[in-house]
Design a protein around this nucleic acid. Structure first.
Lengths: 319, 319
DNA sequence: GGAAAATTTGGTACCGGTAACGTAGACGTT
DNA sequence: AACGTCTACGTTACCGGTACCAAATTTTCC
């Protein structure tokens, strides 16, 4: 008991005793068993479960990095879960991680299986849902309005004079944020009187090569598009490479727009037309919201980290 | 006690009892507390701590993804630790994560602080060190020979006729694998009678933009280089973009070589001269070695996943 | 039908840390 | 000297699941 007090700096012991305890700690190489502390139920654990769809997509790794930095600096550990964009895997992971008595959970996406939802609600711990802003979250939502960002990009491209517009993405899953962007984009194109042709590369992550071959497939469909919007910047870069390889000039023959404003943009000779999304900041905001909830500080239910259109010069005004 | 047996499918109970227990489980929304199980010391936990330097670097995210897939499929959870390439942060993370009684640890890199080493050795759990192959690991090493890969690239470039060679990387840290590659590369260049000029972008992660401005700095040093080797493909791409922007033709005016064979290579019009490293496979092999150790199956102490030179065409034979 | 064997079910203790409380001794006050 | 107060340190019980063992019940078999 006295040793326990010394190790927690709780006071109530004398200096000679403290020295003796510390000497034994060193001699024995003693490491406390945090399991026992949490198990005893006296204080919450320092685990935070963080689930993201995958790591192949740069956006999520940036979000995760932002989360982990902030959590680690507050003394929390990240338990990672990759859901592969499926609610089943998310549910299984939630069940497992909850059995470890985490201090809180950070989940990517706003839709969860019914059983997952009931587990989350009855867990009695802070739940932060990130990525797509949710006006009625389980607990706290941190993200940005993906629908609006898609709409803004659509309106921008239409305003530049594009009308025969293509979209290349990886998944048709109605639940995810990319689909919400596409919905907003679709609405803007329709509102502006344009045509939209969609091409999905299923069973692939949203990286360079799917952008490349997705563009090939889109153009092979015979749709004479004058502009293509991509699920993200990596795919847009892949698509731009394809366009150039077949002799199409960007933006003269074909306009290219991405989403995310990823690091690759900083070295391209053309400034990519895209939506800047503050990924790192989003992750940090999510971790701070979690830390605040864990510390019983007041937290807004919805935290909008915003986005910003980057006009760039891969989609320019048409004659 | 009977309920415990039912929940573990341990046998020794009747069907009516099983039904009654399960009914209560459903009615109460009962979730077992795995903390208690592990705490009781009866069986090992299903946590595996995984530390990597950072997530800004695509190579490590691929390794991590490979690890997490395999671990998850075996029923283990990943506890993430980002060390920011410092041994101090690694040591602090190891101490924390060990106090959670993990089943095992996977660490990136072969060097650890003295205190970290003693904690690891006395932890009595499987330790898999990945990335740079280590002939005398604490427990198990999974990786590739970074020195050799650097040497092979150096010999290749020299054999093509390059002599005034530059290197651009992010860190001068003697401990990490990139430095080992550079050592091998340096030796090969010296053996071949070439000159090597190094440029380090400190305090930055090895991504596109540091490759870009690192190249600018290297060339500003007045070193008239005919070829540049980069810490990885992302930096090489950034550097190639800089060279082209200032009107240098690749590979006619200047050769470019990367390391890693990252996804971006698949969409570039030029095939990047690089070293193919099997990142995903490395992660999977590490996770499998861990799973085997946890299941008391025999495991080799050193697992070499190999590498392969990709000649490409951004560094070509000189006249 | 009754003893032996097998099956099912329940009681107790333990894992390691800590809250709650108890106690011994030092010290001060009147 | 008697009493209260404070500090330092020790004792006990508990968290939830499970190993171990004992008890109760059912099944088997002569």
């Amino acid at each position: 008991m006295t040793a326990s007090r010394v190790l927690r700096n709780e006071g109530g012991y004398s200096e000679p005793t403290r020295a003796k305890v510390m000497a034994q700690v060193d001699a024995l190489g003693y490491l406390p068993n945090r399991l026992a502390t949490v198990f005893a139920g006296d204080r919450p654990s320092t685990f935070v479960g963080v689930s993201i769809p995958d790591l192949g997509n740069e956006v999520f790794t940036q979000v995760l990095e932002g989360i982990d930095h902030k959590l680690a600096s507050r003394g929390y550990q990240t338990v990672l879960g990759l859901t592969q964009h499926t609610l089943e895997q998310e549910e299984a992971w939630i069940e497992t991680v909850l059995s470890w008595q985490p201090a809180g959970l950070i989940l990517t996406g706003r839709s969860h299986s019914p059983r997952a939802q009931s587990m989350l609600r009855s867990a009695g711990i802070p739940i932060v849902e990130i990525w797509d802003l949710n006006s009625s979250p389980i607990d706290v939502s941190v993200g940005l309005a993906h629908f609006d960002s898609g709409y803004e990009m659509g309106r921008h491209l239409v305003s530049l004079g594009y009308r025969r517009i293509g979209y290349v993405g990886t998944s048709h899953d109605v639940a995810n944020a990319a689909s919400r962007r596409l919905e907003g984009f679709t609405k803007a194109v329709q509102d502006g009187g344009g045509d939209l042709t969609r091409q999905f590369c299923l069973h692939d992550t949203a990286t360079f090569y799917p952008g490349y071959y997705g563009t090939e497939q889109l153009l092979a469909m015979g749709a004479r598009v004058d502009c293509i919007f991509y699920q993200n910047d990596s795919m847009a870069f892949g698509g731009m490479q394809y366009c150039r390889r077949i002799g199409q000039s960007v933006p003269d023959d074909i306009g290219i727009a991405g989403w995310g404003d990823m690091p690759i943009s900083s070295v391209l000779d053309a400034r990519l037309t895209t939506i800047h999304a503050p990924h790192l900041k989003l992750g940090q905001a999510a971790a701070e919201a979690m830390a605040a909830r864990l510390g019983d500080e007041p937290v807004a239910r919805c935290i909008d980290v915003g986005f910003r259109l980057v006009p760039g010069n891969t989609a320019m005004s048409r004659p």
